[in-house]
């Protein structure tokens, strides 16, 4: 029997992998994927607690998150494509036009 705690641990590990990905990688696509990973780790937490408390609200929120993530992916990817068209690069450090 897999306990609730195990699910939470997996979710935390996934979340930190996502965070580290965002912080360390330079490729835009990898960062993007890391963000998705973080979102899904949170989804896992929601589902876990939903089952633990026997309350369906958590699962409803998961669907909301998935829908938002889909929309975000659509917009995010189109931005990435536009950036690539302009800069011909996916290295995030090349885009420091906001430097103060």
């Amino acid at each position: 029997m897999i306990s609730t705690q195990d699910y939470l641990i997996v979710s935390a590990i996934l979340f930190f992998i996502g965070v580290l990905g965002v912080l360390t990688r330079k490729n835009l696509f990898i960062i993007f994927m890391s963000i998705e990973l973080m979102l899904n780790s949170v989804n896992l937490t929601f589902v876990t607690f939903s089952r633990f408390f026997e309350d369906l609200t958590g699962q409803a929120i998961v669907f909301l998150v998935i829908a938002v993530a889909a929309a975000e992916a659509a917009i995010g990817l189109s931005i990435v494509i536009l950036i690539f068209k302009n800069k011909e690069s996916l290295n995030i450090d090349d885009f420091n036009i906001m430097k103060g």
Binding site: V22, L23, K26, I92, D93, F95, N96, I97, M98, K99, G100
Partner: peptide, 13 residues
Amino acid sequence: RDIQSGIVRHYAY
């Protein structure tokens, strides 16, 4: 002003 490096990763940090 140096905080505003323009590098997204720093903001994420």
